[in-house]
Each structure stands twice: as structure tokens, then as C-alpha cells.
Design a protein around this nucleic acid. Structure first.
Lengths: 207, 207
DNA sequence: CAAGTAGTACAACGAGCGTTGTAGTTTCGG
DNA sequence: CCGAAACTACAACGCTCGTTGTACTACTTG
């Protein structure tokens, strides 16, 4: 009888929510086991200790989020016909998708806060398995658009980061405060507009 | 003999560093008192409890950082002659100034992670006393530039946020990894260029 | 059906923490 | 120089937590 994959899944799900909401230190093994519907002992049968559980949770969750985002990239930026409209549609889909992964992005903020207390290897596994993968592919799509003459992209990775920051620019210092649904369209449209034309008065050229 | 202002300052300084590095939960009163060179009892003579101490630390620190940033705004964006060069100089000064406030920005990440466990009033006091003040003034400066015909700024607050995000766009998901000094110039220059001209191939207009 | 193992409930441990009380010491204004 | 009160050192309290051991139950597989 091998350790059950179902229990493992339940533990990871419960741990994600608990770590995300309470942070590493505050999240007790008891609380995680309760959230997972599992005994504390079972957690220790699946994971060596709390820190290994945490590292597994963040890497696994980042992988799933990155998969979803890569899917969005594929669906929106493979065939672009109306540059600005398609970028806005993509930005909106991107923003809306974050609603389904709230615990994950909460957890990312926990990682940012706890960085000093997390082994660099775990940080790197998370970054590589998640954000960096997405940034690379977004950079590739932007490069394709540049090759079609629709953009000017001297540094794909930087352009990808600029794009992501602009479309999610709500409150730079406090990511926890939510964007009201009614402002999502504005946020995406303004972000894409700034990404394309900046704030120089000559732009957009034909405006 | 009123409670000593020196001791209060020492407590706030020690608490800032300890909270910033270890987070609210992990930072023990013993560790804070040791960092401050003060007995634990003195902390409780100055502050009601740990949570009030934390709220005071973040608000106070945010105020000092905001003052420094407002100073930079005054020095760089009052008289602009060469738009792009002056913005790059401002961006660089801004980025360099963060080096002197590392503990503060660490603390901000802790607040982002702990948001659910901090009273909304404390969050608001921090936001108002710090980031929002700076965003408003940056918005005003950008508006002045727009009135001189140097920019097109439909929404000052949004433009301010876009500017700040673009010039500090290093790793969106992991703010803890430092920008090497050698890349600061590139970061500022690329951020300002994107802010002015975006990624549309027609820009910059005169090339 | 029989056996072995995953899972559970529960108790126990040692350690750390926030907070308070107390008694002694330092410091500073009058 | 004296007295009030700010400060310190220290012990104690009640609580929580990570982790482990143990004895019992449930399930799956041969």
C-alpha cells in the first residue's frame, strides 16, 4: 500500500490555503491538517517537515499557475490581427485569471516576505518552474510581433516584464488591495496603451 | 521624568530591523529589545503591545521614506529642461535612494504578506502617510510637464504608478532579489524610454 | 480471507513566545 | 542632594507549536 496520492493532493491543497492566508510561521501543522481533512501524522508520513512541505507547495502551485498563463499566451498571442485590441483582450484575460489563483498569489507574497528564511534552492525551483518560464514565452511572442513590424522590442525579457507590470499596475506598495471588477477594463486598456505608446505627446502617431 | 524619546527612537529602530528581517510573528520581543539595546519591559512601557508597536513602526518609517522621496521629486522634477535625460536622472536617484531604506522596503513586503492580520486602520495610516502622498505629488509633477506640452497625461495618478512600476521593473514576482549596481543605469533608462515612447515601432517619433 | 501498511486519534516532549509583576538601580529635575 | 519615575534584570504564567511515539482502525492487495 503506497502512500495515497489523494491524501498528498489534499495536504498540498490545505497547505496552500493555510500558508497563503497565515504565512509560514503562523500556519500551524494542526491548522493545515484540519484544512486538508487529514491527521497531522499523515502529513509527516508524506513530507519530512514543515519546510519541505512549504517548498513543495510553492513549486507545485507555481507550476500550475504558469501552465494556465502559458495557455492564455497561446490562445491570445499566436495570431494577432488588431494589435491593441488583441493585447487588451489578452491583458483582461490575464487579470481575470488571477481571480482563480488567489491563494497562489497570496503565497507568493509570503515567499517575498520570508525570502531570508527559505533555502535559495527552493526559491530558484519556484522561479524557474513558474515566473521565468512565463516571462520567456511572453518575450518570444512579443519578439514575433516585432518581427512582423508591429512592435519594437530590443530586449524581449525586459519588454515582457514591462508589459506585465503595466497591466497589473494598481497599487505598487500594497498588492493585497483588490482591483474592483469595474476597473479591470480601464486597468488593462490603460496598461496596454502605455505599453504601446507611452506618455510622449506625439503618441499615438496617427491618434 | 517622562518616557525618554531616545529610548523610543531606539525601540523603533530596533523593531524596524527585526520586523523587516524576520516578519511580525517570528520577530520576538526579546529579539527586538536586544536589537534596540533596551529591556523588554521598557518596550511595554512605551507601547501597549506588539501589534501597536508594529503599526507605529510601519507608519513612522513610511513617513520618513516618503519625505526623502518627496525631496527627490522636488530636486529633479521642478525644473525640467531635457525631458528624457532629466527623467532618467530622477529614476536613477530614486532607485539609488532605496538602498538607504532597505529595512523599510523589507517591512513593506511583510505588511503585504500579513495584510489579513493587520487592522485596516493601520494599513490606511501607512498608505496615506507614505505611498499615496508620493503618488499624488509625482502625479502633479507629471501634470505640470503635460501642461508644458512635454507629456500627455490623461490620468495623473495612473501615470505616476506606471512610471514607478516601469523604473523599478526588475523581477515582478520576487522583489527580494537585488538589482546589481551595474544594471541600475539600464533599468532606469529602459524604464523611462518605455514610459515615454512605449513599444510601438513608430516611437520615438524622430528616432 | 489474511496480512501488511496507510491513516487516525491522542498524548507527550521540549522549546519559544507575549505579557505581567517585582524588586532593585539609574537618572534627572527641583 | 533628594525623591520620583524611567529603566533594568529576572522570574513566572499560560499558551502554542513542531515533532515523535503508540496503539488502534481501515483499506487494499495478493
Amino acid at each position: 500500500m503506497p502512500p495515497s496520492a489523494d491524501k498528498r493532493r489534499a495536504i498540498l491543497d490545505g497547505a496552500l490555503g493555510t500558508f497563503a492566508r497565515d504565512g509560514y510561521t503562523r500556519a500551524s501543522i494542526d491548522a493545515i491538517s484540519a484544512a486538508a481533512g487529514v491527521s497531522t501524522r499523515t502529513i509527516y508520513n508524506h513530507f519530512a517537515d514543515k519546510s519541505h512541505l512549504f517548498a513543495t507547495v510553492i513549486e507545485e502551485s507555481a507550476g500550475r499557475v504558469a501552465d494556465a498563463q502559458l495557455d492564455l499566451l497561446d490562445r491570445h498571442l499566436r495570431k494577432v490581427t488588431d494589435l491593441e485590441a488583441d493585447l487588451v483582450a489578452f491583458a483582461l484575460a490575464w487579470l481575470r485569471s488571477t481571480t482563480g489563483f488567489e491563494d497562489h498569489f497570496l503565497l507568493v507574497r509570503q515567499v517575498n516576505a520570508e525570502a531570508r528564511h527559505i533555502p535559495p534552492a527552493a526559491i530558484d525551483a519556484w522561479q524557474e518552474n513558474g515566473p521565468r518560464r512565463v516571462q520567456r514565452v511572453l518575450g518570444e511572442r512579443l519578439t514575433e510581433l516585432a518581427e512582423r513590424g508591429l512592435l519594437r522590442v530590443p530586449d524581449p525579457r525586459r519588454a515582457a516584464v514591462h508589459f506585465m507590470m503595466l497591466i497589473s499596475a494598481h497599487n505598487p506598495s500594497f498588492r493585497a488591495d483588490r482591483v474592483p471588477d469595474s476597473e479591470l477594463d480601464d486597468l488593462a486598456a490603460a496598461g496596454v496603451h502605455a505599453f504601446l505608446y507611452g506618455y510622449h505627446p506625439g503618441n499615438p502617431p496617427v491618434g
